[in-house]
Each structure stands twice: as structure tokens, then as C-alpha cells.
């Protein structure tokens, strides 16, 4: 059984069904890429994995190391070793990056982390992400630029050392240097801790730096194609229309939204 296993997942919001039967398995040590056009349901999947209350699971399940997570609170999922780097991270004006990290790390421990150990880890992570220490005394994401927010997500990932991380478009809006930094961060965690990752992206760019073992394509709330890195190139060249057309041929008709 895979570390993170998603089976026949159906998810809806108040007004409609968004995910319509998603199957996906991510193991520690594996890197998966998830691609798909705008609105296909990628972020919905990411948020549902972490237990966002706006999304209701109507069918299927999410298992983490064999344990069903479907009913678990987000904090329990985080403590079990899941992590989400948000596409749009929230700003929390009440707390500094460092203090927030200390709180978050302590939720996984019996004894609060010592000052020295925390300091050393933080130094390590700030070096990795090429941010100065002053960055961690700023209020969490408050007034951060787009790029700073993304770095901050990866900084948190580096500190929290998840088993499996979902990165929702962490590459979007980054200049090439920032992109490389973020990618290095992901690789390093992958290499050092054996972290598994589900990298949601629209672009081939990041996949030059973070090499996926598997690529999945989502369309209208389903994973419709799976393959290796070669699939990324094909998508970048041809877009998603050919996939859509192929599907229509397969199912016989353009899909109606079964609202």
C-alpha cells in the first residue's frame, strides 16, 4: 500500500461536484507531477488532502499509511506528516514566521523544541532558501511579495519535514533564481529525508529542476492520463485539447456537467 493513497475520490462544494473519481498513490521518496488546465480541480484535490472544511467528500477515501484520513482534522493530518504548500498562502499578521514555525513544530513533539536546536534548524532552512534571518521575524506572509510567500512555504516545509508534501503551483510567479532555489529545497528534502511530493504545476520549467517519477493529468475532476516525464513535453507542445478530444472519442460525446 502506498503512503498516501487516494481512491475513487469524489468531492463537492456547496454548489457542485468538482472531483469525480480521483485515484492517486504517492509513496515516500517519489516525486509526482500533477498537471491540468485551470479549474480542473488540482487545488481542490490538494486542499481536500489536508482536510479543508469547504470540500465535502461524497465518495471514496484518502488513506495515509493505511489509516483512513477522510474524517481527520487538518491538524491531525499535518501531524501525521502531510504538508501543503498553498497556491495562495494566507497572511497571518499576528505571528512571526519563526514563532509560527516553533508552534507548528511543537505540535509534532512531546517536549517543546529547545532554543538551540530550533535556531540551528532555522539557520539551515534559511540558508537553503536563500533568505536572511530577518525574514523569519516578519509577520507570516503579511505584506510578502508573491515570491516571498512561495519561499516561505518551502521554508516551512523544510522545517516541518513532512513525509509527503503537496506543492500547489509553488513555481508560479517565481523568477528563474527563485524557481531554482525552491526546486533545490524540494530536491534536498527529497534526497535527505526521503520526502515524497506531489508537484502541481502548469509549466515544464520546474520539472527541469525537480524530476518527476510520474506525471498525472487532470481534466474536469478526473485523472485522465498518466505517464513519465515525456508526457510533460507533449503537454507543453500540444496543450490539453488533444487530450480532451481523445476523451470525447472514447466516451462518444462531449461530457455534460452532471450538476
Amino acid at each position: 500500500m502506498a503512503d498516501l493513497e487516494i481512491r475513487n475520490l469524489h468531492v463537492r462544494t456547496e454548489d457542485r461536484e468538482i472531483l469525480r473519481g480521483v485515484d492517486l498513490a504517492v509513496n515516500k521518496g517519489e516525486i509526482h507531477a500533477l498537471m491540468g488546465p485551470n479549474g480542473s480541480g488540482k487545488s481542490t484535490l490538494a486542499n481536500t488532502i489536508l482536510g479543508h472544511p469547504a470540500y465535502e467528500i461524497t465518495e471514496g477515501e484518502i488513506l495515509f499509511r493505511g489509516q483512513p484520513l477522510t474524517e481527520a482534522d487538518p491538524e491531525d493530518r499535518a501531524q501525521a506528516g502531510l504538508f501543503l504548500a498553498f497556491q495562495y498562502p494566507a497572511a497571518i499578521p499576528g505571528v512571526s514566521v519563526a514563532n509560527f514555525l516553533r508552534m507548528a513544530m511543537n505540535t509534532k513533539r512531546e517536549e517543546p523544541i529547545g532554543v538551540k536546536e530550533f535556531g540551528a534548524k532555522l539557520r539551515h532552512a534559511t540558508d537553503l532558501l536563500h533568505v536572511d534571518r530577518e525574514f523569519t521575524s516578519r509577520h507570516l506572509n503579511d505584506g510578502f511579495s508573491g515570491g516571498e510567500k512561495k519561499r516561505c512555504e518551502i521554508l516551512q516545509m523544510a522545517m516541518l519535514e513532512p513525509e509527503v508534501a503537496v506543492l500547489d503551483e509553488t513555481d508560479s510567479g517565481l523568477d528563474i533564481d527563485a524557481l531554482r532555489t525552491v526546486a533545490e529545497g524540494v530536491n534536498k528534502l527529497h534526497d535527505e529525508t526521503g520526502m515524497g511530493a506531489l508537484v502541481i504545476t502548469h509549466y515544464q520549467r520546474i520539472l527541469h529542476y525537480v524530476t518527476p517519477d510520474f506525471v498525472h493529468v487532470m481534466l474536469d475532476g478526473r485523472i485522465v492520463r498518466e505517464g513519465g516525464p515525456e508526457l510533460v513535453e507533449q503537454l507543453e507542445r500540444q496543450g490539453y485539447d488533444w487530450l480532451r478530444e481523445e476523451l470525447e472519442v472514447l466516451t462518444g460525446a462531449p461530457e455534460e456537467d452532471d450538476v
Binding site: 479543508h52 487538518p74 491538524e75 499535518a78 504538508f83 501543503l84 509560527f100 505540535t107 516541518l160
Partner: peptide, 12 residues
């Protein structure tokens, strides 16, 4: 904001 923090392990 609440979900963001909970997804990092903090209680509500």
C-alpha cells in the same frame, strides 16, 4: 487563516 494554520498542525 484558520485552515492555513491548522494545515501546519495547530489546533483550531
Amino acid at each position: 487563516q484558520v485552515f492555513y494554520m491548522r494545515s501546519r498542525g495547530l489546533s483550531r
